[in-house]
């Protein structure tokens, strides 16, 4: 298992290099650059050239990328061009807000989808099952920003109970977390329902019932632990979505996380900050997927056996 984890960690290095390459070049292709934004309007071409050199933006894109990568491999993500502070410092400062939002939304999503999915499966083909299907379809097909705007309209404009944006208090967290949480609950409900439906038909549940296990524990213990295997897979990509979805949601709710930071960095053509944010994002996503794979092994002994080989 340890060897497996180490291998996965090493595999992340080429992934991160590729991502940094793509982002760096895409940013370079985008029109406009930070130097012309920063330089005073009456600056002479010589002054602009000096500024460019100061910021480390001189040379061809390949030369610049080479310098960037060299520093990156030495653990230095550079300095934000617009904020004039180390990228890593800015990132770490904004990270807690995004993590808070992501985890609050996952908790909400799980709290909705696991009980709903189980109830739908155990009441297969009843109105309860039907409504769960409709609800999850609705939540999957509704864009997050739109749901966010609806919630703002309902709960901070019409009924003024929650702030429409910003952060700081628990109240600020509710609407964005609810938006992101409902967004993910749809997919999770769907997968919980279908994997429970699959497990419910299995012979081993009949064995459990024949042993005298009560219906409640047949479902919560014997069935759920098996159903968790596909649920965990989806949970991994859901967490990924939670980070990604944060970009839109953070913008709608003026939430000071890395999603908004990244958007701002791209808009101001802050190469180092944007590339740094996206690399860190990728790293977080990959770590999540790794954690999911490890969680897998803990739920499914067959997977664990494969890892230890």
């Amino acid at each position: 298992m340890a060897r497996y984890i180490l291998r996965r960690l090493l595999l992340m290095i080429p992934v991160l290099i590729c991502v940094s390459f793509v982002v760096f070049f895409l940013m370079d292709l985008a029109p406009g650059d930070i130097v012309s934004q920063m330089a005073p309007a009456d600056a002479t071409p010589e002054q602009i050239e000096m500024l460019r050199e100061e910021l480390g933006l001189n040379g061809t894109v390949l030369q610049r990328y080479g310098r960037y990568l060299w520093n990156l491999l030495h653990g230095d993500m550079g300095t934000s061009l617009s904020l004039k502070r180390p990228v890593i410092e800015v990132f770490v400062e904004r990270l807690p807000a995004t993590l808070k939002l992501a985890f609050a939304s996952i908790v909400i999503a799980l709290a909705i989808s696991i009980p709903l999915g189980i109830a739908a499966a155990t009441h297969h083909r009843t109105w309860l099952d039907g409504s769960s299907v409709v609800l999850s379809m609705l939540s999957v097909s509704m864009p997050a920003f739109w749901l966010g705007l609806l919630l703002i309209f309902a709960f901070s404009y019409r009924i003024k109970i929650f702030p429409s944006g910003g952060s700081g208090t628990f109240k600020h967290l509710i609407l964005p977390a609810l938006t992101l949480g409902t967004e993910q609950a749809g997919n999770l409900t769907r997968i919980t329902r279908s994997s429970m439906l699959d497990v419910i038909r299995q012979d081993y549940l009949r064995t459990a019932r024949a042993k005298g296990v009560s219906e409640k524990y047949v479902i919560r213990k014997h069935a759920l632990k098996n159903a968790l295997i596909p649920i965990i897979t989806v949970l991994g990509s859901t967490l990924g979505n939670a980070f990604g979805g944060a970009v839109a949601i953070e913008t709608v709710f003026a939430w000071p996380g890395i999603g908004r930071l990244t958007v701002a960095a791209i808009n101001s053509r802050d190469m180092t900050l944007a590339t740094g944010c996206i690399i860190m994002f990728t790293l977080m996503l990959n770590m999540t997927l790794l954690v999911v794979d490890i969680a897998y092994a803990y739920v499914d002994p067959r997977v664990k056996a494969r890892y230890s080989k």
Binding site: D203, Y204, T207, A208, H222, K225, N226, D300, P301
Partner: peptide, 10 residues
Amino acid sequence: DPMTALNPVF
């Protein structure tokens, strides 16, 4: 059927 009568995760 003994192949499917046992719970695979316990």
